[in-house]
Amino acid sequence: MHVTPHFGRRRSAVIGAVAVGALALAACSSGSSDSAAASSGGGSKGKPIVALLLPENATARYEARDKPTFEKQLAKSCPQCRLRYYNAAGDAGKQLSQAESALADGASVLVIDPVDSKAAGAVVASARQQKAKVMSYDRVIYNAGVDYGVKFDNVQQGAVGMQSLLDKLKKDGKTSGNIVMMNGDPVDSGAKPEKQGAHSVIDKSSFKVAAEYDTKGWSAANAQNQMQQAITKLGASHIDGVYAGNDGMATGVVAALKSAGVKPMPPVTGLDTQLDAIQNMVAGDLYESTYLPVETEAQIGAKAAAALATGKKPSGALLNGTIDDGAHQVPAYLLKSVAVTMANMKQVLVDSGYLTVDQICTAAYQKACVTAGLTK
């Protein structure tokens, strides 16, 4: 993450023994922050506590977008609620310890974006013992039967990125060619369906997956190494396009292509519409980045958490489908993603207020912005 990205998307595995051990700890140092939706003190009788547990802070979206949007919406939807915020910094054991700390503080709702989707099941079991509700946020918690989930349709977002890539190649006059696929970390529950979605597009096309990698940690450095392997295997002139599961990996892909002196650059796709990725798009190094309306996800998540905190079930506008966690069908809201290229960047990102022209067109990108028509 991923998103990671991605997004924003960095995940690390943890074995069952670590999960059990973490839940047994009294988390004296949880890395949490406490923000009030009401002015009274935390833990006051009759003041529901909602705990938001996000997975990492290496990807900009979590601290810059998810947390503040969730916090603002919760204050609006449940003025009497208090928010306890935790970030696990990519450490699955730490997240389990943070969840235990939140429950010890009296949280009645846990909203969890899991670092490890399997290990997080231990959190749900612990919450059940205290009659606390659990929501999965942005990713699935496997085999746990949580009360509600909100996330992006990962199959759809994988299909969006791949379709955008193939459409570009066809527009350029190619009817076949070699595609390199840079998929996300299999530990992340979103990686497999995203990969499935991308394959659902390319597998029925005339294009070929000539090299494919699962990228540990959604890491730019790992993606760069893998892209170098693909260039060695296929030859630079035989790579027609690259699908990358998030913007960070796309950055690594572009670095490898440039290092190998590949000209012209084949189209490369990403996901998360991070600022640096959009700047790379303006500069001509990145063709596409899939936009995830994270603010909408956070708003829906906060509204659902408010409902659960006040003894209700999320329904109506907060419910449009289910999530299969491997053992249960979890009531959920699934969001759609949008492919962003230079053709619709201004409309989707700038006109919506997601980014400003000033943010994109810093000194290093002024000339490219003029060429792209963003500035004069």
Results as ranks from 00 to 15, higher is better:
106 G>D: 06
275 L>G: 08
33 S>V: 13
268 V>T: 11
349 L>I: 11
346 K>F: 11
196 Q>Y: 00
359 Q>R: 07
236 A>E: 06
257 L>C: 07
292 L>N: 13
267 P>A: 10
92 A>F: 09
30 S>N: 08
10 R>P: 08
321 G>K: 04
133 K>Y: 15
139 R>H: 02
292 L>Y: 09
111 V>E: 02
216 K>G: 03
163 Q>E: 14
236 A>D: 03
27 A>M: 04
123 V>N: 01
286 L>P: 10
105 D>P: 01
39 S>W: 07
50 V>W: 11
197 G>D: 01
59 T>W: 01
282 V>H: 05
359 Q>C: 06
229 Q>M: 12
183 N>E: 11
324 D>F: 03
244 A>W: 02
122 A>H: 04
274 Q>L: 11
272 D>V: 07
208 K>R: 15
175 T>L: 00
310 T>I: 03
32 S>T: 09
336 K>I: 01
54 L>H: 00
367 K>S: 15
276 D>M: 10
228 Q>N: 15
258 K>I: 12
163 Q>R: 14
370 V>I: 12
330 V>Q: 07
339 A>K: 05
147 D>W: 04
326 G>Q: 11
352 S>E: 07
253 V>E: 05
89 A>W: 00
52 L>M: 09
219 S>V: 00
219 S>H: 00
152 F>V: 05
174 K>Y: 11
39 S>C: 09
297 E>F: 01
11 R>W: 02
291 Y>V: 05
130 Q>I: 02
317 A>E: 14
257 L>R: 11
159 A>S: 13
216 K>Y: 00
276 D>C: 01
341 T>W: 12
99 A>Y: 08
364 A>G: 07
